[in-house]
C-alpha cells in the first residue's frame, strides 16, 4: 500500500458549525432603536448616518447609538456587541468595502442576530464573494445583506446621501418581516 497523501488544511478534524441563529424580525421600525456600527472605512459614517436619518424620518425609528469599530478588519469585540444589544432593537453595520472589512461586517451582522437583534450589514457589491464566504464560515449559509455599487470611498456627500436612499428599502426588508 502506498502512503496516503496528507491534507494540508486541517479542516477534516473541525466539527461542522451549527446553523447560526437568526433573530426574530420586527413588524416595522416604528419606535425601534437603531444602532449604527461604523467600521471607519471612507464614507461609512456619513452613509450609515444618512440611513439612520431616513429610517427616523420615514419609518419612525429612533437612532440612539452610533459606535465605531476600532479595527475594521476584525469582527466587533464582544463587549461592543453586548453594549449595542442592550441599548438597541436593530443594528445596521458597514460599509463592507475591503477584503477583510466586508467579511467582518457580515460576521458582525451574524453576531448580532445570535444576540437576538435583527441586523442589516451593508457591503459594496464588489465584495459579495468574500461576504458570502464569511457567512458560510459563520454557519450562516445564504445570509442576506444589503449591497451598494462599488466604489463607495470616492463618493461626494450628495452621492453618499443618494446611495443611502437607494439602499434604504433593502435595509428595511432585512430588518422586518
Amino acid at each position: 500500500m502506498p502512503n496516503p497523501i496528507l491534507d494540508p488544511t486541517g479542516t477534516t478534524a473541525t466539527a461542522a458549525k451549527a446553523q447560526a441563529p437568526r433573530a426574530k424580525r420586527r413588524k416595522d421600525l416604528n419606535g425601534a432603536t437603531v444602532g449604527l456600527l461604523v467600521n471607519t472605512k471612507q464614507n461609512a459614517a456619513p452613509f450609515l448616518d444618512e440611513v439612520g436619518r431616513l429610517l427616523a424620518q420615514r419609518y419612525g425609528a429612533t437612532v440612539t447609538m452610533a459606535r465605531t469599530k476600532v479595527n475594521f478588519a476584525a469582527p466587533a469585540p464582544e463587549d461592543l456587541v453586548k453594549e449595542m444589544t442592550t441599548s438597541c432593537d436593530v443594528i445596521i453595520t458597514g460599509i463592507g468595502d475591503c477584503g477583510s472589512c466586508s467579511a467582518s461586517a457580515v460576521a458582525d451582522g451574524i453576531a448580532f442576530e445570535a444576540a437576538g437583534l435583527p441586523a442589516a450589514a451593508i457591503c459594496s457589491d464588489a465584495f459579495r464573494v468574500t461576504a458570502d464566504a464569511m457567512a458560510d464560515l459563520q454557519g450562516a449559509h445564504g445570509y442576506r445583506y444589503a449591497t451598494t455599487p462599488h466604489p463607495v470611498a470616492v463618493l461626494t456627500p450628495d452621492q453618499v446621501r443618494e446611495r443611502a436612499a437607494v439602499v434604504l428599502d433593502d435595509v428595511v426588508a432585512l430588518l422586518t418581516t
Binding site: 496528507l6 491534507d7 494540508p8 488544511t9 486541517g10 458549525k17 478588519a73 476584525a74 469582527p75 477583510s100 467579511a103 467582518s104 460576521a107 464569511m134 464560515l137
Partner: peptide
C-alpha cells in the same frame, strides 16, 4: 486567525512546508 476561525499547528505547518 480569529476572524475566520482557523488556526495553524506545527503539524499543519510541516505538511504545507513539505508540499
Amino acid at each position: 486567525l480569529e476572524q475566520v476561525g482557523r488556526n495553524c499547528t506545527v503539524y499543519l505547518a510541516a505538511v504545507n512546508a513539505a508540499m
